[in-house]
Simulated scan of single mutants.
Amino acid sequence: MGSTEHDHSPPRLPPRWFVRAFWAGHRLLCRVSGGRAGLSRPRPGKYGMLRLHTVGRRTGKPRAVILAYFEDGPNLVLLAMNGWGDPPPAWWLNLSDRPEARVDLVGEQRSVRAREAQGEERERLWARWGDYSKSTEELNGFAALRSRRTPVVVLEPKT
């Protein structure tokens, strides 16, 4: 585990039922509004929200989830955390099996290919996530809640 992730005591999270209910409501809002509500572009100090479409690794069925992201050149950057819970999120397991996916952004759709950032790139992108949290210290505190290193996921445009 990187020392940048686990240097501080973890903050308190809301109850798991609350996190799940919030995201279910967010997905519903996005779905019923046709994406006009619930998706946003990143701006200084605030991450954006996108809808990621994957294929279930066990079922082969389409799956969709709304996630926070920021842009790094043409790439979109996500954190593979499960409400900061310990298990990996299903969307990341799906992408690990089938990295081709589609994203809905405000006013556009993109075909992408996912990969996990490694080494220096990962450290750079992790530090940038601190710009979209209250602080890097807070981000590191949340990461400390997990027994495994939080993957930084890069969605590259599929050409």
Rank of each mutant, 00 (worst) to 15 (best):
Gly107Cys: 09
Gly73His: 05
Trp92Phe: 15
Gly38Gln: 08
Leu93Glu: 15
Ser111Leu: 13
Ser40Leu: 11
Asn75Trp: 00
Pro74Asp: 14
Val65Gln: 05
Gly60His: 07
Arg31Ala: 14
Glu71Ser: 12
Trp84Gln: 12
Lys61Cys: 10
Pro42Trp: 10
Ala114Thr: 09
Pro62Cys: 10
Ala80Lys: 07
Glu71Pro: 03
Gly107Thr: 11
Trp84Glu: 03
Gly73Lys: 03
Ala90His: 13
Gly45Ser: 06
Leu76Met: 11
Asp86Gln: 07
Arg58Ile: 06
Ser33Pro: 02
Arg43Asp: 00
Pro62His: 14
Gly85Pro: 00
Ala80Gly: 13
Asn82Leu: 03
Leu76Ala: 04
Pro87Met: 02
Pro99Trp: 06
Gln118Met: 01
Leu79Gln: 05
Trp92Leu: 08
Leu105Ile: 09
Asp72Pro: 00
Val77Ser: 01
Ala90Pro: 00
Ala117Arg: 10
Trp91Cys: 04
Arg57Thr: 01
Leu39Tyr: 01
His53Gln: 14
Leu125Lys: 09
Arg110His: 00
Arg63Asn: 13
Asn94Thr: 02
Asn82Pro: 00
Arg115Lys: 07
Pro74Val: 02
Val77Glu: 01
Ala80Ser: 07
Met49Phe: 10
Pro99Val: 02
Arg36Phe: 00
Ala101Thr: 08
Ala37Met: 13
Gln109Cys: 04
Arg58Ala: 15
Ala117Asn: 08
Phe70Val: 06
Glu121Gln: 07
Gly25His: 10
Leu76His: 11
Arg27Glu: 15
Arg110Glu: 04
Gly119Pro: 10
Asn94Ile: 06
Arg31Thr: 11
Leu79Gly: 04
Leu67His: 11
Thr54Val: 06
Pro44Leu: 02
Glu100Cys: 04
Ser40Pro: 05
Ser111Tyr: 08
Arg98Tyr: 05
Ala90Leu: 09
Ala101Arg: 09
Leu95Thr: 00
Gly119Ser: 11
Phe70Glu: 08
Leu95Lys: 06
Gly107Ala: 14
Ala37Gln: 01
Ser40Asp: 05
Arg122Cys: 11
Asn75Gly: 00
Arg51Cys: 08
Gly56Trp: 09
Leu29Ala: 15
Ser40His: 04
Pro62Asn: 09
Arg57Gly: 07
Glu116Met: 03
Asn75Thr: 04
His53Trp: 11
Met49Trp: 07
Leu52Arg: 10
